[in-house]
Design a protein around this nucleic acid. Structure first.
Lengths: 223, 223
DNA sequence: ACCTGAACACCGTTCAAGT
DNA sequence: ACCTGAACACCGTTCAAGT
């Protein structure tokens, strides 16, 4: 009977659809996230999604929301303001790192999920207590989130979702293009050529990024 | 006769098409930049564009190239490395600021135009002389460019291209959403609410952003 | 060299209708 | 409440053909 069929489709829900969308983005990139693709993946008609989401942008909101939900904010510590900032930024980075292909959705959507709001409140509050004005605090907080996204999305070698051989071909092409440059005109570029293609130590890459952000924040801190 | 007609179409060229594409992006955003739209704007068939550009991505490359071309790099000065860095970053910012709706194209395309390569060489060279390793120099340079783009694209109130009234409606909605938050839970967010919607002084906003970037770079500088 | 015409395989979305 | 069918207005792109 129908109930025994292994292909019976379970009911759709906002949550399972959003989870499917995030998984798809992680595997194939944001361009692959389309209403029609999502529908066929769930063996359903495209229009079925419109019951659960207002439009495609709401689906993307759902992806972002899941990532914000995965941020585990540390307990407020007793350290200096810059140590506390570092701990929170580390938590955000940890949540975003698994999703380099979806991270671009986050910055414009902080205010559209409660987890995003909680995160923003946390960072802005910390900056306020560190002496920032409301305006500076909100601007700095938003810049910090954007920067973490930038670190994740522009890590050398991580911006793509190709097969190993396609990746190799693309790398070979870039290497050739760089190698064809005049060494008199582009000495530093040629010297660093390899490091545009891959990142040999991700952890120190991100650690340095975090150092940069905390130092930068210290630099613009009033008085 | 036809030669006297004011509507005679002049010959297409890669340059005029790319200029039209940039102007369109500036006016209506990147989503408006489509092969078909560009074609009808130039009173031509969509397929005509494929003579001048390999595909749509090449059109976007053309937009990015124009912005990179508009960067006027300062003469190498005799100041400290951080002063020189600041001067170059200011030049990049000045070139990107007029194009908030197209700026997202830049970061992945630095290596695809000569102006981009020249810019990258300049920054990486400066960082090398300041003591950065080739790897750190290239990573920092790429992060700096991304950050300038971030400053421009995420300036409060500038992420959109709506009519004045649509903008007001949207702002009213956001204000209402923020105002509905629990003041016990989101005190700092409510305090800064206005500053998510507009930026009262763009110049100091950008100046502080540049301070942040130079201080951050100082912070991660070796030894 | 430069452009057109017709066609294909995709999109998001609306609206009425089914259960 | 939840999903389908048919239709519309868009995309990018290929391929053969015109001048």
């Amino acid at each position: 009977m129908a109930s025994a069929s292994s292909t019976t489709r379970e009911r759709l829900s906002r949550e399972t659809l959003a989870a499917g969308a995030l998984a798809l983005a992680d595997r194939e990139g944001l361009e692959a996230v389309t209403i029609r693709r999502l529908a066929t993946d769930k063996s359903v008609t495209p229009m079925a999604l419109y019951w659960h989401f207002k439009d495609k942008d709401a689906v993307l909101d759902g992806i972002a929301e899941q990532i914000f939900d995965s941020v585990v904010l540390p307990e407020p510590s007793t350290g200096d303001w810059d140590e506390q900032l570092r701990e929170v930024l580390d938590a955000v980075l940890a949540a975003i790192r698994p999703h380099p292909l979806a991270a671009d959705l986050l910055a414009p959507r902080v205010m559209k999920s409660v987890a995003g709001l909680v995160l923003a409140e946390r960072v802005i509050g910390m900056l306020r207590r560190a002496g920032f004005s409301p305006q500076q605090a909100s601007q700095t907080a938003s810049f910090l989130l954007c920067s973490i996204v930038t670190l994740v999305t522009s890590e050398p070698g991580k911006q793509t979702n190709l097969t190993a051989e396609d990746q190799e071909n693309l790398d070979r092409g870039k290497r050739a293009q760089l190698a064809s440059l005049d060494p008199k005109l582009f000495p530093s570029l040629l010297e660093s050529a390899e490091f545009f293609l891959y990142c040999d130590d991700e952890d120190t890459y991100f650690a340095r990024g975090m150092d940069f952000l905390v130092d930068g924040t210290r630099g613009v801190r009033p008085s």
